[in-house]
Write a protein that binds this DNA or RNA. Structure first.
Lengths: 211, 211
DNA sequence: CGCCTCATTGAAAGACATCAAAATTTGTGG
DNA sequence: CCACAAATTTTGATGTCTTTCAATGAGGCG
């Protein structure tokens, strides 16, 4: 179900471009949808910034269940973890370009990395609150509000991820995700152009469902 | 239900003692059970190491639901968060003594703090996996195994926290926690001396319930 | 057009929550 | 040390929400 395409990036070039990258020299890598960026157990010696596209970070249980711990959108950093080897998988969701920073860069900028690690922890803990204490509607609402805010408050969301990705992120099944989306649509809280394009019609209603 | 006792520590003294504290000078503070260490919104300018006792970190939803994001046992650090103000509450669970480190200390040791932040993120993400993808039995099992490992593998656990704390940590109700514990006892995976003292009889059985 | 993947919808089952009450433990004062 | 009150934990009955299983529908691409 979750077979990752084992392969290295389609292209890697040294560049200094991309939308608002972290300063300093870095590599640019591009990945096709579903391509693995790193795997559990891989050496943890780089970090990444999304230029275009989207990335999912996840872990698998032995029976195949998957928990997506985070999505990363353009401008966001990921890849830093405790320990010398990755405990998670990272995959491109859509066609994705990344700025890649090496170990040296990270050592030189441990101050920024600290801030990133702290916000990463805060994000994970906020997510814990959603998964641990919200019903299905609350989880979806929180997810949509979060996505909206991370895209600068734009009311029209283009979802890069599938229903399965969302379900695995929120600790639900795809059927429940689908049913909740349908319900929110019926209540005119959101509107769907297609399954991956959502208009937030009543943002405040959505927010009020979050707590 | 979760009324915190608003008060400052019972005592604060400058000391250099306690079990394996972080190096350097620090204050020592003691707290009675239930006492608040910091509140959501408080200035975030210190970090703490548990000397004795136990601490819970949590957030509240507007309707009173609570999510405990972490417990901290002797030797463990807590209190570092993104942002200049705390997003969580910290409370002593039992009679607790803490080593308190100030801003200066943290600035001087941002390297260690980075490692702590990264492991904090890893912990939160591991916890996400448990809450998001495990049934009630798996959550309790993971909780007990984690506690066992954090206490150096000792098979006899003295739980400092109540069933309500555990429930709010695992995203369950106290009734479910109690029923699962009863079930594990019936299967001879664990044994109870009293509600707060658990012997792990079959650790491998417990582990196998985690994934 | 047909096939494949992804998404939606329906019916039934299951897991956990809720409500209620009993049992056990803890703390307090005599 | 015992007695009593309060808090915590356990147990039972019932209800609700989410999952599971199954089938249908929609969209993309050869």
């Amino acid at each position: 179900m979750y077979a990752a395409v084992k392969a290295k990036p389609q292209s890697i070039e040294v560049e200094h471009l991309g939308p608002a990258p972290m300063s300093g020299p870095h590599l640019v890598a591009t990945y096709k949808p579903g391509r693995e960026i790193y795997a559990q157990g891989d050496l943890n010696d780089k970090c990444y910034q999304v230029s275009t596209g989207a990335v999912r970070i996840y872990r698998l249980l032995s029976d195949g269940r998957r928990q997506v711990v985070s999505f990363h959108l353009p401008g966001e950093m990921f890849g830093f973890e405790a320990g010398s080897n990755h405990a998670f998988f990272a995959e491109a969701i859509t066609e994705t370009t990344l700025a890649v920073f090496g170990r040296r860069h990270m050592q030189e900028r441990s101050r920024e990395l600290l801030a990133l690690a702290l916000t990463g922890m805060a994000r994970a803990q906020q997510h814990l609150l959603v998964i641990g204490r919200q019903c299905a509607v609350g989880r979806i609402a929180a997810f949509l509000v979060d996505l909206c805010e991370r895209q600068g408050g734009c009311r029209q969301l283009r979802l890069p991820m599938s229903r399965q990705d969302i379900a695995d992120y929120l600790g639900l099944t795809i059927e429940t995700v689908s049913r909740v989306v349908t319900k929110l649509k019926a209540r005119s809280v959101i509107a769907l152009r297609d399954a991956r394009t959502i208009d937030i019609v009543r943002l405040e209603a959505l927010r009020s469902l979050c707590d």
